[in-house]
Simulated assay, not measured.
Amino acid sequence: MRRQTEGWTRAGLFTRGFGPEVRAGGPNMVLVHGLGLSGRYFVPLARRLAAGGASVLVPDLPGNVRSRSAARRAPGVGELAGALRRWHRELALGPSLLVANSVGCQVVAAFAARDPALVERVVLLGPALEPGVTGLRQCGRLMADAPREPLGLLAVAATDYLVTGPLRFAASFRHALRDAAESFEKQLARIEVPALVVRGSGDTVASRDWTRRLAGIVGDGRVAQVGGAAHAAHYSSPDAVADLIEKFMVGGRG
């Protein structure tokens, strides 16, 4: 089957495709990025999953980087989930494995809670943000994580943040903090499909206790850890994360 390698735009969202071309209603994986970023830092994982035969789609959420013009202002978490739903339905995708990192986990939780028929399984990588933790402390955790990440990731993130813009980033951060305090865990409790919560062993953003707590909220949740990785384990250890996802897809415990 033809392999997708170039980006394209549907429902206002710039999207990268990897692996076999997605057939309407066919099996697929959707990777959802974190705050202020684009899908670029998911490319190593997307390529590894595609090498295993998966059809992988990586959209830039509205207001971010190559989908920046899709929103006039920074959307809230619920608005991002709604935009992802419209994109998903326009592509006529079947039930998807949703893989998200950081604040993207909040978007996926809202999406899965509202549209369970569109979700096969959920993978949460380094989920953020933890309720009850101040915005200042959350920023401190992110800064502490930076020296633990590969230089390549820092370059990608810095460029993406500049394109998204500091004002939009700040507004998006406020939206995400509000969602974490009011909605995130409630949305997770509504998810009935199997969920895998993954953290890097050196992640300063998503603690071991927090990830275990989230896995316990989901009806069928489990946890896994990637040794030697930090918050963006999917970038620094794509093979290890892909192995966990592939085992999870066939019912393994990760």
Rank of each mutant, 00 (worst) to 15 (best):
residue 109 A to S: 15
residue 72 R to K: 12
residue 224 A to R: 13
residue 13 L to N: 08
residue 15 T to D: 04
residue 190 R to F: 03
residue 123 V to C: 14
residue 107 V to D: 05
residue 152 G to T: 12
residue 119 V to S: 04
residue 192 E to I: 03
residue 76 G to L: 05
residue 109 A to V: 12
residue 216 G to R: 11
residue 62 P to Q: 03
residue 185 E to F: 07
residue 9 T to W: 06
residue 23 R to Y: 02
residue 244 L to A: 09
residue 106 Q to C: 12
residue 221 G to T: 14
residue 157 A to Q: 13
residue 253 R to C: 07
residue 91 L to G: 01
residue 177 L to N: 07
residue 252 G to V: 04
residue 36 G to P: 05
residue 172 S to N: 02
residue 164 T to E: 04
residue 228 G to F: 02
residue 105 C to N: 10
residue 230 A to L: 05
residue 224 A to Y: 13
residue 35 L to S: 13
residue 24 A to R: 14
residue 77 V to Y: 10
residue 222 R to S: 13
residue 242 A to I: 00
residue 44 P to K: 00
residue 67 S to T: 09
residue 23 R to H: 10
residue 251 G to K: 13
residue 119 V to K: 05
residue 76 G to I: 04
residue 178 R to Q: 14
residue 166 P to S: 06
residue 193 V to L: 02
residue 179 D to P: 03
residue 252 G to S: 09
residue 39 G to L: 00
residue 100 A to N: 11
residue 161 Y to S: 02
residue 20 P to S: 09
residue 177 L to W: 03
residue 204 T to E: 15
residue 168 R to F: 08
residue 140 G to T: 06
residue 132 G to A: 11
residue 40 R to I: 00
residue 190 R to V: 02
residue 194 P to S: 00
residue 117 A to S: 14
residue 71 A to E: 11
residue 240 A to D: 06
residue 157 A to G: 04
residue 137 R to G: 00
residue 9 T to M: 15
residue 86 R to E: 14
residue 125 L to C: 03
residue 79 E to F: 06
residue 134 T to E: 01
residue 2 R to L: 08
residue 195 A to S: 14
residue 109 A to M: 14
residue 64 N to Q: 09
residue 79 E to T: 11
